[in-house]
């Protein structure tokens, strides 16, 4: 099948644009989404194409962005609300965790909240401490919300479409580092190509160790797998894609084969994605476990400005390779 390389931001733009054409109730709102053409250029051209009614610049008001999306969704619209970066979504945590995620529950199903929060996530180049979070696990803590975190262009396309079409609230994070990264998308891609919510993916097969990751962590895991292959070690890379619901069936299947696991993530190590996966593996797969579960995450420090120590704090493929070698 013919395919060409597409940057992840282009795939996201295409998915969003097609969904806006498909459903008149889908609209975008957020800081600089209209006249600025999107801080990350995802909504480039949208204002011209769809007009101010459906492409709505907001003030710098994250609490309102979070909550207006909830009200609009309850009333029948399908908002795609953008947080310029996920760091700013902390300001909206109440709207996300207490309202988007819970309105349906505490009114026992009276309302649906079909919204998507999009947020750019991860560390930038010397973006400094307050702009350098990959805090997806914080949001994945809350039942009622789904959390999607794509690792390549095709996944981003299919996952965003599934999120927009789903009747539950979804936090959809987009790794800043992956925005410009090209990856293949088929030329004859169906506009209804959807990746089901909660469905993970094996990005590389291997029988010696399972690397579990999401979003940018998948990149590091794949690089590490290629390096390990040169030493004759075949790593299987499980891309969970969604932090909630979590496709643990896929992880267990892989782990039964490899009996070893390293978890890779861009975010901080405490109370993390890695902690959760490791806990579930030891609870449910104890009989298959041949070595300690290892975790590769950012160092437990705020991200500094200065380049060398910034890089020191972050995970990379070499750290994954080292972790694998410790448990082989």
């Amino acid at each position: 099948m013919a395919a060409r390389n597409v940057a992840m931001r282009e795939a996201i733009r295409r998915a969003l644009r097609e969904e806006m054409h498909r459903d008149e109730n889908v609209f975008v709102m957020g800081e600089e989404v209209a006249y600025w053409q999107g801080t990350h250029r995802v909504t480039r051209g949208f204002l011209e194409e769809f007009g101010e009614r459906r492409v709505r610049d907001t003030p710098i008001s994250e609490m309102a962005i979070g909550g207006v999306a909830v009200g609009a969704a309850m009333a029948g619209l399908r908002p795609v609300a953008e947080f310029m970066t996920i760091n700013f979504a902390f300001l909206a945590l109440d709207a996300i965790a207490n309202h988007a995620a819970k309105v349906r529950y505490f009114f026992d199903g009276m309302f649906t909240v079909p919204l998507v929060y999009r947020a750019a996530s991860g560390w930038g180049n010397q973006a400094t401490a307050s702009h350098s979070h990959a805090p997806e696990p914080i949001f994945a803590h809350f039942p009622g919300l789904y959390v999607g975190c794509p690792s390549n262009s095709l996944d981003a396309y299919g996952m965003l479409k599934a999120s927009i079409r789903d009747d539950n609230p979804v936090l959809f994070t987009e790794s800043i580092a992956l925005y410009p990264k090209p990856s293949p998308m088929p030329d004859d891609l169906d506009e209804d190509y959807l990746i089901p919510i909660g469905k993970g993916d094996i990005k590389r097969e291997g029988g010696d160790v399972t690397l579990v990751a999401y979003a940018r962590g998948v990149d590091w895991a794949l690089q590490a797998a290629r390096a390990l292959a040169r030493d004759g070690v075949e790593a299987e890379v499980v891309d969970l894609r969604w932090l909630r619901p979590l496709d643990m069936a896929l992880v267990y299947e892989s782990f039964k084969k490899t009996n070893r696991c390293v978890i890779v993530e861009e975010s901080l190590p405490m109370y993390s994605f890695g902690s959760e996966i490791a806990a579930l593996l030891q609870e449910n797969m104890f009989d298959y476990m041949d070595a300690p579960i290892k975790r590769v995450a950012a160092e437990d420090a705020p991200l500094p400005y200065s380049k060398d120590i910034e890089l020191l704090a972050l995970p990379d493929a070499q750290k994954v390779v080292n972790a694998v070698k410790e448990i082989l």
Partner: peptide, 19 residues
Amino acid sequence: RNTYVSSERVHKTAHTIGA
């Protein structure tokens, strides 16, 4: 009940904690 809108395709793959 009503943590989420029912969705069979999710249920099939969800880990029970996320269900």
